[in-house]
Every structure is written in C-alpha cells, then in structure tokens.
C-alpha cells in the first residue's frame, strides 16, 4: 500500500510539475503578447496624440489614420479620450469624442458585451458610459435580459441615467437589487435637475438608501430650489433623515430664517445639535450667539468644539469667546473656548 502511495504521490507531483511548467510557458508567451500589445499602443500614442489634439481642439481635419486597427489602437484611443474627458470640460470636444466613439469604437464594445469574461463586459460598459456611445443603448437593453451580475446592472443603470433618464427612474423603481448610498449618489449626480427634482418629490416611496443618497445629492447640487424640500424633511421622525437634511441645508449655506432651527438646539441627539452649531455659521452672530453659548456648554465634546469654532469664525467671535471665558462657570466650555481662541490667534 505504501509503495502504491509513493508511486501515487510521485505521479501527482510529476503531473503538477508538468502543469506548472506548461503554465509557465503560457505565461511567458502571454507576456510576449502583452509586450507587443503595449508596443503597438505606445506607437499609436506617439504618432497620433498630436493629430488627436489638433482634431479635437484646433478644428483640424479628421484623418482616417486615426481610425483604430485592432485592440491595441483602441486601448491607445481610450487613453487619449479618457485623459481629455477627465481633465477638461469642453462640450465641443465631448461631442467629437462621442461622435467618433459611436462611429468607430461601437463595434469593439458591442463584441465585448458578448464576451464570456465578466471583466471584459464590465470594461465595455464603463466605456459606453464614459464615451457616451448611445448607439449601443438597444444592445445594452438586450444585454440586460441576459443573466448579468449586480455590478453589470449598476453600470447599465448608470448608462440609462445618462441617456434615458425616464427609463432610469422606472428601472430603479422596479429593481430588486439594492445598492449602497455611495452608488446611488454616483447615479443621481448624473441626472438632470428636472428629473432629480421628480425623484426627490417622490421621497417617501424610496428605500432608505435612495432617500439618504437623494438628500446628499441635493446638498451637493446646491440649488436654492432644494431648500424648502430639505426643510420639510426636518419634521420627519427618522433621526438620520433629520441629520442629513440639516447637513444638506448647511452645505447649501443659505439660512433665510432662524426659527425652524431653534428647537433643535435642545435636541436629544448630539448629532443634531452638532449640525445646528454648524448651520449657525451661516447666521449673523447677533441672532445666533445666545444659542451658540448654550451649545458651547453642551455635554458633548463635538458640539462644544463646533460651537466654539462657529463663534470664532465671526468677526467679533474672539471677543465674544473671551467675554464668555470670564463669565462662565463651566470649566469644559472655558477650556474649549480657550483652545479655539489660541488656535484662531495662532492662525492670524
């Protein structure tokens, strides 16, 4: 039996070694292929980057030499396009890139979408969105009917949010897949204001993650039109909605009346009090000081710290804090005020 085991183990080792040897050969060949690919890509970049620049920015003539022949040249064009799209906002350039991609790159990504490999399909979906290849939209909808992963579906949603926003809203309504807040934000940011407002109006019908992402997106869009809606959210029971709405209002930075915020100075939740201390940055100190003084003596360290910072940022803030230090009996509040004063004076 042992003899059998030795021979068995030897066979296993030999088989494994042979497999590893073949794998090594494959890797070395693959390596050669990759070097050739990189060389073709780099040659294209070297030869045609200037042509591309002239065509995109200087209204130079389009030449057929720019049309890619093979994958390596497509990769080179992707590098050129992506560097312009990421670093420059220019509608004319974006339009030319879109036109070219729809005309000459479409067939490559169409083929990639049918690939067995998940990563290739994902890359194709990335490019369709980045290069705005709207002619592949029907293919994408067909692709959606096949068995796809959650990541692929997310990319499809992103494509819809760029090209067909109505369809996008319908899709997230019917979708059973739940994405993270950060992912929803990535989708909502791309929406036109008119579509986003409708999504926001429908607030109560969305899941938590979509609600949170919608509030945060409204904050980042910084439109005055969202202020009223965010104020309405302050009446919600859910603390997280309240805190985020306050954060959104702080980000937008326009506080037209102080009254809706005053009751929150005495909120049970320190996060809410912290946000109020922040919001008062956008209110003249003469109206907010009484509340900020109260927050300076708060039990919570973060609230005290923020209240001191908010006061200090005002022109008369340092004097107010010094006055406070002399009159207050709250040692923690005094220390916080002192640290803020010293820091502020240090900055000056």
């Amino acid at each position: 039996m042992i003899e059998l085991s030795i021979s068995f183990l030897l066979t296993v080792i030999v088989v494994l070694l042979v497999m590893l040897f073949l794998f090594t050969i494959y890797l070395l060949l693959q390596h050669e292929r990759e070097i050739r690919f990189a060389k073709t890509r780099d040659t294209y970049l070297q030869n045609y980057s200037q042509h591309w620049y002239n065509y995109l920015f200087n209204d130079g003539n389009f030449s057929m030499v720019l049309v890619p022949r093979g994958r390596a040249q497509v990769a080179a064009i992707e590098i050129i396009f992506s560097s312009y799209l990421k670093n420059i906002t220019n509608e004319k350039v974006e339009h030319k890139i879109k036109e070219f991609s729809n005309h000459y790159l479409k067939k490559f990504y169409d083929k990639d979408l049918a690939s067995k490999r998940w990563s290739i399909r994902m890359n194709a979906l990335y490019r369709i969105a980045d290069l705005q290849i709207d002619e592949l939209l029907d293919t994408c909808q067909q692709f959606e009917k096949t068995k796809i992963s959650e990541e692929e579906y997310f990319q499809l949603l992103k494509i819809y949010s760029i090209f067909r926003q109505e369809l996008f809203i319908g899709k997230i309504k019917e979708s059973s897949i739940h994405y993270s807040e950060s992912e929803y934000r990535r989708l909502f940011v791309l929406l036109e204001d008119s579509v986003f407002i409708r999504l926001f109006e429908d607030f109560n019908s969305w899941t938590k993650n979509i609600q949170f992402a919608a509030i945060d997106t409204a904050a980042v869009k910084r439109h005055m039109q969202y202020i009223e809606k965010l104020k309405q959210l302050l009446t919600y029971e859910e603390p997280e909605i309240k805190i985020r709405a306050l954060k959104g209002l702080y980000e937008i930075g326009v506080i037209d009346e102080i009254d809706p915020y005053v009751p929150f100075v005495a909120s049970d939740m320190w996060e809410v009090r912290l946000m109020i201390a922040k919001i008062f940055k956008h209110v003249p100190l003469e109206y907010s000081y009484a509340y900020l003084e109260q927050l300076l003596e708060d039990d919570n360290w973060w609230v005290r710290s923020q209240a001191a910072k908010t006061i200090a940022e005002n022109r008369e803030g340092i004097a107010k804090l010094q006055q406070f230090m002399e009159s207050s009996n709250d040692q923690y509040a005094i220390e916080m005020a002192q640290e803020t004063v010293v820091r502020r004076q240090g900055i000056k």
Partner: peptide
C-alpha cells in the same frame, strides 16, 4: 481571476471625490 483585466481606474476616478467617500 474574475477581476483579471478589469479596469480599476473607473472606480478610483469615481470615488476620488469626497462626496462618495
């Protein structure tokens, strides 16, 4: 192997903004 050849810059570029991180 699933991730082999996946372009990671897509995620990097999308999340370089404080809004997403």
């Amino acid at each position: 192997r699933k991730r082999y050849k996946l372009d990671p810059s897509e995620y990097d570029d999308a999340h370089i903004d404080a809004f997403y991180s």
